[in-house]
Design a protein around this nucleic acid. Sequence first.
DNA 1: AATATTTACGGAAACGTTTGCATTAAATAA
DNA 2: TTATTTAATGCAAACGTTTCCGTAAATATT
Lengths: 335, 335
Amino acid sequence: MSVNLKELSKKLNLSISTVSRALRDSSEISEATKKRVKKKARELNYHANPFASNLRNQKSKTIAVIIPAIANTFFSLATNGAESFAQEKGYHVLIYQTHEELAREISISKHLQNGRVDGIMISLTKETFDTSHIKELMDKGIPVVFFDRVAENLQVPKITTDDFESAFKGTEHLIKSGCKRISFIGISEVLAINNNRLAGCLAAMQKHKIKIDKSILITCDEDRIKNKQKIKKLLNSTNRPDAVFACVEEIAISSYEICEELKLNIPKDLKIMSYSNLNTSAILKSALTSITQPAYEMGREAASELFKIMYKKDYVSVGSTIVLKSSLIVRNSTK
Amino acid sequence: MSVNLKELSKKLNLSISTVSRALRDSSEISEATKKRVKKKARELNYHANPFASNLRNQKSKTIAVIIPAIANTFFSLATNGAESFAQEKGYHVLIYQTHEELAREISISKHLQNGRVDGIMISLTKETFDTSHIKELMDKGIPVVFFDRVAENLQVPKITTDDFESAFKGTEHLIKSGCKRISFIGISEVLAINNNRLAGCLAAMQKHKIKIDKSILITCDEDRIKNKQKIKKLLNSTNRPDAVFACVEEIAISSYEICEELKLNIPKDLKIMSYSNLNTSAILKSALTSITQPAYEMGREAASELFKIMYKKDYVSVGSTIVLKSSLIVRNSTK
DNA sequence: AATATTTACGGAAACGTTTGCATTAAATAA
DNA sequence: TTATTTAATGCAAACGTTTCCGTAAATATT
């Protein structure tokens, strides 16, 4: 196997403890031996066994990122930010996908109760109405931070965007573009992110005296095919909306595809606006008006907050929320 | 802290070893005590310390996925496949981004020499012309598999797609659509994947007696902005190509953006075809003709191969290559 | 010169498991 | 009845670190 401290110390005619200290630059060791030890360590390609260190130190230099899905522009960008930050700090990143299933989220949480990671970043599933599994982690003393899809009732740092405000602003833009019948298409009835966006949308409509028709406020919380059927039904109805405000980009994409099928022109027959991190927004058949979250920065910020509480001795987590701004980019789909 | 075997065994009036064996269903323990032990373990919310187990067992139940970037449709899909497979097997997944830098790839490789993971899946950077750092890992006895961006000279399982054949077929499609001046835009001069695609493209041109102009076989291996300038120069030249064959989707996206700038119509003024896993291909301003790799399956397959050699005692890695098929989907951008 | 302090190192315990090797009691065989 | 096997459990070593404590020599202090 790999060379260990014992072998290394034998070759050097030194004790294990001296070698260990020399390698970690202890002040108790003379510069001369430090040099000698480090040189030999390089020669023999010595690398400390992480499990022995972890066991002894009771920490893993590892964080977990729990997300609904990695193959998603928002979450992959956020993960990019988190991993980049962690790598800079010399930490490792474990990734877990819940696939939008609460059962998996719970199962993963249980698996992380044993100290495998020093901290956890999580974005909840569409189904997560109850967060006692997260509470359990916190009670075990494991630092947790939420990003984007947060649980508002837990005393944990949260990284979010200005969902209400950006949705409000986006909806005002739609109204100014002449929309009178706006359909909000959400992804969940339990996620704060969804409900805040919806609330922002409704508030703008109220302010501008737009009649709210609840029958066109729909939720696509099932699989892709069923969701598409739901949207198709909406866009095929006699009393079709004149605009779709999509809560996430997948819904916008489906809407585009359905417009194609139904020969609806965007933006003439239907305007579409969406929360989106697509890098193809500008080159879509009708360039997509987007509300773009700073996904990469959110991932970095979440990791940064996580490290802050991880480093704090005897930490008491506080429920501070960091709100980043999304940006509205108007393009052809709402002209 | 967390409850450990010692405390648990004390509560049960049993020895540590008995409790340990009971929990792992050893045949040496009576059913009665097994039941009693498991019940108590649940009650006290006992979870074995993974580092102690790892140290003792000399394995980590963890694999590493090393990729250029996670915020990339292909790699995020492949990672999805790998993580899904690993999760099913009860394994954990560490993720590392190289950001296309060989130096990082080397640094990460060094960090994984210490047994932190039981196996590694890797897709190389654009810059990786030398793979001695990978060889070092193999020499330490750590199972490695390549996917997509492979090193052809190493004796390791490799998961690839039929790059030569799919590029050949795609190019023939371009030629049949009337293209006489095809520009291949690559991403690296050292990656096999790039060179195989280029070779496939050239072979098709040769077969159909299309003149090959080396000045329009270009490589975009720098940052986004410089690459875009390069493409712009190409598309703005007097002797502009009538088709772009993009080696990866980022190049296709840039090409679309430049066409917009230069008021070039796709496909009238320029046809574009690309290797791509974009889920917006069909709704782009001119729907993109794509060669799509089975990214998710590649990730799963790579993980599957990795587990095979991980489970093999005293394994000798063989350089078997699994080739999956890409599919050509013809859309409007080459009509 | 005698004592106190500092410097540089070694011994051994501890982190929490897993497992080879007893050990004991009960069950079976001779 | 006595010897032998089987079943169920305990003891202690081992995995490879880190660090508390101890100690001898070297240096500083009075």
